[in-house]
């Protein structure tokens, strides 16, 4: 079960960030070739990301690339480059409809076939408009390549004729819809970036809020936010104890060949076990079980 608490946004034109992002150990590094890259740097940033993806520093870290839209002259070139370079996930810019996803999927399939790779590139759809939010349920279940959907708040609030606020009420509906759509389709849900890098308190508040809502993680633009976010996502000691008990009971049941797992005389079903595994993954990643952090 892949943890995706933090997805670090790395502008493809910012070389020092491209080269150093792995140091901060985000769950996923997301190289951007779209909005953060100026028109005249598109070609150069594409090559940079193409090589970075193949570098050993990104071997054991999940990588995503936000490509330019297919209707632009850069979209196809971006895909040709990053799929060859073995990217894990393509983040679709601005997904409004199911067709947007299917069209992208078709192009990716063609490229994968052409270069003869076995790798199935995953998709992440960014929902950044009212239309996208309305279609979120259909979008979330339209492709088995889709590993998640993400809210892109900046464009969304503009489309909604409002702006971002500290309280975040403007995103209430979109967050709820995206989360429900993702959960119903059994894929991941990601929250938008928190853009005021100086407001640490505000970030902590928002991160806690989206975690409680049920989001899997959040896009980040500042590497310093990663450890903060991971701490917030770390399970409590009680949760870990509970999860350890559940897994132990499950392992015992398996050993004894029992079809039913129970703790303290109560039956434990598969989703609960899955949840316990997830909690232990989180605990491990948070260094609570001698994990890697």
């Amino acid at each position: 079960m892949k943890l995706r608490r933090s997805m670090l946004f790395v502008p493809g034109s910012n070389t020092s960030m491209v080269c150093n992002a792995f140091v901060y150990r985000p769950d996923t590094v997301m190289f951007d070739l779209e909005d953060s890259v100026a028109i005249e740097e598109k070609d150069s940033a594409r090559l940079m990301v193409y090589h970075a993806l193949q570098h050993f520093t990104y071997e054991d870290i999940e990588t995503a690339v936000r490509v330019n839209p297919l209707h632009s002259i850069y979209g196809l070139l971006d895909l040709e480059a990053v799929i060859r370079a073995g990217v894990d996930i393509i983040r679709l810019p601005k997904t409004d409809t199911v067709e947007d996803v299917l069209q992208m999927q078709e192009v990716i399939e063609k490229i994968e076939f052409k270069i003869g790779t076995d790798k199935r590139t995953k998709l992440l759809a960014a929902i950044e408009s009212a239309q996208g939010v309305v279609n979120a349920v259909d979008i979330a279940r339209c492709s088995d390549r889709l590993m998640g959907i993400a809210l892109g708040a900046e464009d969304f609030v503009r489309d909604l004729h409002t702006q971002r606020t500290k309280a975040g009420s403007e995103l209430m509906v979109a967050r709820a819809q995206i989360l429900l759509a993702a959960r119903a389709a059994k894929i991941h849900a990601f929250d938008s970036v928190f853009s005021d890098v100086r407001d640490k308190e505000g970030f902590v508040k928002e991160a806690n809020y989206i975690k409680d809502l049920g989001f899997d993680g959040k896009s980040l633009i500042n590497p310093n936010q990663i450890s903060v976010l991971h701490k917030i996502f770390a399970p409590s000691g009680d949760d870990v104890e509970w999860a350890l008990d559940v897994i132990e009971a499950s392992d015992n049941a398996k050993e004894k060949g029992l079809g039913v797992v129970s703790i303290d005389g109560k039956m434990v079903d598969a989703p609960v076990i899955a949840r316990a595994q997830w909690t232990l993954e989180l605990a491990k990643a948070s260094g609570m079980l001698g994990g890697d952090e």
Binding site: T15, V18, C19, D43, S44, L47, M48, Y50, H51, A52, Q54, H55, L77, E80, A81
Partner: peptide, 23 residues
Amino acid sequence: ALDYVIKARLQAAILRANDDKKI
């Protein structure tokens, strides 16, 4: 710069010099 950065920049420059669309 790391090796791959130099490589990326040099390749970008050469592609620009030749107006190469077919990569």
